[in-house]
């Protein structure tokens, strides 16, 4: 079970959270203007990185807030937690290399 550091509440066990998939995917402003291919890209296509992955979590059984995390998928270690809307933080070079 992972330890997740909610930016609003602090460190809590994973069972308090629900997973929210890949981060930094904004819903298109004008979906009607997208062709089928572009819409399908938004709907279905996700990266599957071996390395540092930006992902969403929700403190569902806590404050209820969504936030983002950087997790190394090869170790399950978290490298950063940050609020929704904030830019993806820059990590020391040894981590970024694996993205």
């Amino acid at each position: 079970m992972l330890i997740i550091d909610c930016p609003y509440c602090g460190k809590r066990p994973e069972i308090e959270f629900s997973y929210g998939g890949q981060a930094h995917l904004a819903r298109p402003q004008q979906p009607a203007q997208l062709d089928d291919q572009a819409w399908a890209e938004f709907l279905y296509m996700r990266t599957n990185i071996k390395g540092v992955y930006a992902e969403r979590w929700r403190h569902a059984r806590g404050c209820g807030r969504f936030f983002n995390a950087l997790r190394d998928t090869t170790t399950d270690h978290f490298l950063a937690f940050y609020k929704t809307g904030e830019p993806r933080p820059t990590l020391p070079a040894q981590h970024e290399r694996t993205t």
Binding site: R56, R58, G64, R65, F66, T84
Partner: peptide, 9 residues
């Protein structure tokens, strides 16, 4: 909540 917090804050 997802849409309220992350798409339409």
């Amino acid at each position: 909540e997802d849409y309220r917090q992350t798409e339409w804050p």
